[in-house]
Design a protein around this nucleic acid. Sequence first.
DNA 1: GTCTATATAATGATAGAC
DNA 2: GTCTATCATTATATAGAC
Lengths: 190, 190
Amino acid sequence: MALQTITQDALVESLFEIIRCHGYEGTTIALLSDITGLKKSSLYHRFPAGKDDMVKAVVLYVSAQLQQLIIAPLLERQVAPEERFSKMLVTVKAFYGGGNKNCLLNVLSLGEAKDDIKTLLKQDYAAWFAALSALAQDAVLTQTEAEVRAEQFLIAVQGALVVQRLTENPPTFDNCMAYAQKQFFKSSDG
Amino acid sequence: MALQTITQDALVESLFEIIRCHGYEGTTIALLSDITGLKKSSLYHRFPAGKDDMVKAVVLYVSAQLQQLIIAPLLERQVAPEERFSKMLVTVKAFYGGGNKNCLLNVLSLGEAKDDIKTLLKQDYAAWFAALSALAQDAVLTQTEAEVRAEQFLIAVQGALVVQRLTENPPTFDNCMAYAQKQFFKSSDG
DNA sequence: GTCTATATAATGATAGAC
DNA sequence: GTCTATCATTATATAGAC
């Protein structure tokens, strides 16, 4: 059998999909080995500190994705707020597989991942929240109201993912995102 | 050291708190033994089929709680819909410890719990959804709109729990519930 | 950098005394 | 019905050949 070869990026992407699906304690080194095709000792060669090292690499990868694909576009002030939001939704739907894939923030904040990992997750949430809040303020809302909308939207994302996983009813997430967009930009009184 | 003694109800309640906190794979028999004070073999005596038996007992216990404390009061048609909803919120806030405790439906739908357990979780969600939908129809909404409101509320519950766990920002859940109540009963135009 | 082989600890589960 | 003691399996992790 030929030696396995896989770039570090492709490997981390693969680890990400496994971890978001199985959670921290549900992800075993044997499972990572089986799915990536790399033997366990090879995984340890790439991540000397073991499982936590692998999880941390995945979290950092997701942080970078979040920053590039979601947060940066949200802050492009030359684009109209509604359009920035729409483009974010396209990315978000793809990122969560139309609501069929879990959010790492939910999955890893549940398990007994190390504190430094939970701090990174918290920072990811905060960054997304701040970008949404800034967008809402660009759309003429007060800071207070903008922060409420940002939080409500992120609650809708996490909640819809949980509910769709639970009910296995695929339109839930996409429907919820469409509704959330209307709510995000509605006039302040309603 | 004296023999441990604990009623089955108190034991299941204790198992519930451990499982909702640590998840399916994060909950080890050793941990259950440490916290309940019962030795591992005593746990197996009470739940001969092992871990899955324990989890199933917890899920059935939660189903009963949901039915008695949340669903039944929601369906008391002699009480005004707004009041039924308010009373549900009091129960829900207590049940989730003001947003500091996890929902078993989220926790167990993530892990690799057996299919019959996931079916029970699905039924719990469906029962809560149906009761909320009936309540919304009592409050004069169309069936379609009632079902949207019911789903939106349950999404808010699950999402707010995730976000509060993530941010460790305690008012999140209670604030979200207050907002959700207003949304649930607002007039149909939006 | 990947592999085979192995060490060490934790996990789910059982046998049998009291 | 609870306990001590133990088992078989799986988990994380390492040593060393190629």
